[in-house]
């Protein structure tokens, strides 16, 4: 036996019997943590650390150039008692979410139900309806929207065919927010695709049983389709609502970054952006961000709580 083979056999023996707890723990757990290393750096450096810092900054006055000054609850007190723009931005955002999400989902569900009846050309329709969702986040589309709803824009050109003189939708505070709601509804394609997938996963034998019993189509919809689809409705509603709260680009482009006219498109995120990066009130903007987080958290918790009563899950 050569020295080499002795040491090799010793290593095998040692590995099998006498390896320390530490090296076995290393072998078992280290790969997982190594694979997660990039994510860990991002998670602590770009998420957890900033969350804690942001909470701290929300209790300070901070202009980026000088060190943060402790302000206690000042920012929050000002927000809730003495800031008309905060109230306006909250109202605009709530209005946007309350109208755009249900309308968008209603369109998505309606078209999905129609397409699901074995319509010929389904892939083509599906693709055409999805295209706006894919393009819609672009600045180019926001620019286009501003043109469509301008005083001499496409909508008014169309109305002029019937002798109607339309207002300048974008610069009229009564309508400006609605143009953004329409832009959101225009992008109903992606929830529609999720609805279609949900419809396809409803077991066919349920429908067969219903038709044997002679149930009307209306009854089948209310008793089978809709209950079986509630998990998808729930999912879509949560995603779209959170997206609604975070919406920024269209309002920024259409109002030129100001939320005009008369704050009618002052989305919460737009207000926060201006506080932080136009006026450098970073402490106040952090407080705004934490209120947004609280709203999203409360909304999500509330939805999950109420979902017990209306979302149907397979037992």
């Amino acid at each position: 036996m050569t020295a080499q083979s002795i040491s090799a056999s010793a290593r095998i023996k040692g590995g099998a019997v006498g390896s320390s707890i530490w090296s076995r723990a290393w072998e078992n757990h280290a790969p997982g943590y190594l694979f997660l290393l990039p994510w860990f750096i991002g998670f602590f450096g770009l998420t957890i650390g900033p969350i804690i810092t942001s909470l701290y900054l929300s209790f300070t006055h901070f202009d980026l150039l000088t060190a943060p000054r402790w302000a206690g609850l000042d920012n929050y007190i000002r927000m809730f008692t003495n800031d008309r723009n905060f109230v306006a931005s909250m109202r605009v955002t709530m209005f946007f979410v309350i109208f755009s999400v249900p309308l968008k989902l209603a369109f998505a569900l309606g078209v999905a139900l129609l397409l699901n009846r074995g319509m010929r050309g389904l892939p083509l329709y599906r693709a055409l309806f999805y295209l706006p969702s894919l393009l819609g986040a672009s600045v180019a589309i926001a620019i286009l929207w501003r043109q469509i709803f301008a005083g001499d824009g496409l909508v008014n050109q169309f109305l002029a065919l019937f002798g109607i003189v339309g207002p300048s939708w974008i610069s009229n505070p009564n309508y400006s927010l609605w143009t953004l709601i329409v832009l959101s509804i225009w992008q109903f394609g992606s929830p529609m695709i999720i609805f279609l997938a949900g419809l396809r996963s409803i077991p066919q034998d349920m429908y067969e049983a219903a038709s044997l019993e002679g149930a009307s189509k209306w009854r089948v919809f209310w008793k089978i389709t809709l209950p079986m689809l509630t998990p998808v409705v729930f999912f879509n509603a949560i995603i779209q609502t959170i997206e609604g709260f975070k919406s920024f680009t269209p309002a920024f482009i259409i109002s030129g970054g100001t939320g005009s006219p008369i704050n009618s498109t002052l989305f919460y995120t737009l207000y926060l952006y201006n506080e932080a990066f136009s006026f450098f009130r970073m402490g106040y903007a952090s407080a705004l961000a934490w209120v947004l987080l609280a709203i999203v958290a409360v909304f999500t918790a509330f939805s999950f709580f109420t979902s017990k009563f209306w979302v149907h899950y397979d037992d």
Binding site: P31, G32, F43, P50, I51, A276, W290, L292, A297, T300
Partner: peptide, 26 residues
């Protein structure tokens, strides 16, 4: 398989819901 996998996975899912504004300024 590694210790804490479920915990970190849950943490990852939590970050999905986080509005980016909260981490923006820091």
């Amino acid at each position: 398989e590694f210790r804490g996998r479920k915990f970190w996975f849950a943490m990852m899912l939590m970050t999905l819901m986080l509005p980016y504004q909260v981490t923006l300024i820091p």
